[in-house]
Write a protein that binds this DNA or RNA. Sequence first.
DNA 1: CGGATCACTTTACGGCATACGGAGATGATG
DNA 2: CATCATCTCCGTATGCCGTAAAGTGATCCG
Lengths: 266, 266
Amino acid sequence: MTLYGGQGDPARTLALLWRAHSPEAAAEQATGRRTGRTAPGPKQGLTVDAIIEAAIGLADTDGMERLSMRAVGERLGASAMALYTYVPSKRELVDLMYDHAHADLSHAYPRDGGLRPAVLAWADDLWNCYLRHPWLLQVSYARPVLGPHEQAVLESLLAVLHPADLPARRLRPTVSALFHLVRGAAQTAAEGRAAAAATGTSDQQWWTERSALLARLAPDFAQRFPHSTHLAGSSTDTDYDPVRQARQALDGGLRLLLDGLEQVTG
Amino acid sequence: MTLYGGQGDPARTLALLWRAHSPEAAAEQATGRRTGRTAPGPKQGLTVDAIIEAAIGLADTDGMERLSMRAVGERLGASAMALYTYVPSKRELVDLMYDHAHADLSHAYPRDGGLRPAVLAWADDLWNCYLRHPWLLQVSYARPVLGPHEQAVLESLLAVLHPADLPARRLRPTVSALFHLVRGAAQTAAEGRAAAAATGTSDQQWWTERSALLARLAPDFAQRFPHSTHLAGSSTDTDYDPVRQARQALDGGLRLLLDGLEQVTG
DNA sequence: CGGATCACTTTACGGCATACGGAGATGATG
DNA sequence: CATCATCTCCGTATGCCGTAAAGTGATCCG
């Protein structure tokens, strides 16, 4: 299921998200409204960044469903409650993780050679980020709390599309569609990969077992779903790798979209 | 977050999914391997369908995060544990809900008039289903356990695309892209709608507050993200409705894709 | 030094899915 | 009719979860 982010206190979340990027704000944030004095009490033993990175590491290896405040704390040699000094709640932590993971992107896309290779490079960059951090796809992207790295992904896509000089009413759907395609394909890929890893059976094995089962339970399948049956039958039997399949689907979808776009831009 | 389905016992799940559609299999399923005899013990007070419908009703009104076995049981005047006689676990229940909700689709799309109106009608049908059952978008669609109603959605899209006579290597990405577009747009719409309902503030209010906050925390935003700033500034200030916006993005994306498709089909 | 203030821990609460065992209903069998 | 196996459903318990509340001890200011 999708975990919804961006629902904590927006001021606090935004402050944390943009914290490192405007130094005086960060200092102000760290010390509250006291300025020039050091606070009593023990020094902080953790940092927000350490927490974010521990949480991301945990999600990368164990998956989002294993991400708990206790587990993150343990990874840092602290209790679950220790994190609450740094982060208002788990929701905000997920928002911070989400933004931070997008720092992986290179933002280096070919500038000459036209729209197509640049858009493909952007999509590939994002695709790789999603496959590295598949839990990103479990955090809804419709959330409007935007952090700097997330924003940078959009910005670099807009930079790539800029030469096409699309009006806003064209640009907006194009951007949305590109994000949806990459996310959807990456989700299919990540999930197929995870399923294979979880069950231990090979993809081919899994499919043949599944279809044998289905054939027994729904003997009229081929009559009820002739087109689906035909499509399934026409697969390149050599390639059951879900990641490669999803990637082919992505490339094909992008190609269609870019074909359509070129028709608009002339 | 996305809730992953399709991870229970596949045989059991598939049997439940296809149960109603092959009567003798359903009977066999109900009585185990005993045939022709009635079982001792009290009669069952519930049905799988009643449970599925109660669960869907709950998810529709209260959202996926409020869906619990206890709550579903309560809605049926039973305990949480009573459900486990009918359904192996919550995961399977979600799979069943997912499939059942897709029974909403009409599958009636214009047959004459070419590809475009038919594809748009299909997309509209699915979009409406998602907005009626927004929790569907929290269940990953990359799951490979397919039920009859889910399958019918794919089948009717394939029927719509059939006249174009695309080879499989073209058809597959097209189908994926169409699903991704509709799902992505619907998710944006549903989430925007939910956020507005949850916070109580109007969409416009929300946006102005958010951007004021952002302007304070990241005063260099416009310099760092010129394209994003420009795009945000060029919005039709009259229309903050997230559902309508997402729908416009969907229509634009579909248009691009169909333009690209027409180039292929000639 | 005394007290305020902080980071962090321990404990606790209510909620979750669900394993387990018991209670009672029902039909088949003697 | 009595017995018994079998079934549904419930009560309880276990071990998770997020996080509230209260306790502990370090640290700095006066």
